[in-house]
Simulated scan of single mutants.
Amino acid sequence: MATNVNEFGRIDTVLAAAVISTGTFDVGYPSGTSQASYQNGLAGAANVMIVNDNDRYSGAQLSVSFGASTITVTNSTGVTLAAGSRVSLMFDQVDGNNAIFLNFPIQLAAITAAGDVVTDFSPGIAGVIEDFTFTVTTPVTTAAKLASLNLEIGTTNVTGGVIALTSANSTPLGKVLKATAITGANVLTRTSVLSVEAASVTAFAEGQGVVTVKIRPTRDNSY
């Protein structure tokens, strides 16, 4: 059976001062990562701290808070980490290095009122929704039309992730319209159903596009 291997961001530091048990210290983000790499369901629970290339701590022995520019680590080991200690930290990211893309063709003129555009699609994937876009395949030419698209898992709307379609922005051919930032309620299980909803509709006369949902798997989805 194929398996996904945990992805970790690693950073090494030397403690400038002693850190008592329950004390904290800050580090920068590992190369190639940022706060966004660990938000909205993308942070794993298997963080690891190795002190002086010898003592290994994980699980409840440390807790991690991902700030805007630094990561705050709480020492819950029960011992004081001495000043000058060499500390290696590995911050867990969700399993799976491959994104999965779901694509749904949409005819804008068929959206005449608020309601589902796609209803109860079953991705069969345990993961988090990272992104939501609309790519124009037939431009809109009639002015003053609009609709907003959002995602729903089961009966709960994804927080954020709204695409505001208008006559002005649904052109030219090939334009990609990104949703607002997705900030929560975006976790899928293998049994989840996913819907695309329309709201605030002033019906379009023409135009087509493809809605794309980007999912990051959070565990092995292979058999």
Rank of each mutant, 00 (worst) to 15 (best):
S148C: 01
P139K: 06
N47T: 04
A181V: 13
P172E: 07
S192D: 11
T72C: 06
Y38S: 07
L146F: 00
T156E: 04
G209W: 00
L108V: 05
L188S: 13
S31L: 11
S222M: 12
A179Q: 01
E7D: 08
G207V: 04
P105C: 08
D92V: 02
P172L: 05
T22F: 01
V5N: 13
L42I: 03
D131P: 03
V79L: 04
V176S: 03
V5M: 07
S195V: 09
D92H: 13
G28T: 00
T3D: 08
V64M: 15
G41Q: 11
G154S: 11
I153G: 14
T70I: 15
L165M: 08
V201K: 00
L15S: 07
G78S: 01
S21I: 01
S37F: 03
T74P: 07
A203P: 15
T77R: 05
R10N: 09
G9C: 02
V162N: 04
K214S: 08
G160L: 11
N54A: 06
G9R: 09
A179R: 09
F25Y: 04
R216K: 15
G44E: 06
G23D: 06
A198W: 01
T13Q: 06
S34M: 06
V94M: 09
T183E: 12
G127H: 07
L177R: 10
F132S: 05
T155E: 10
S200V: 14
F66D: 14
R190I: 11
N54L: 05
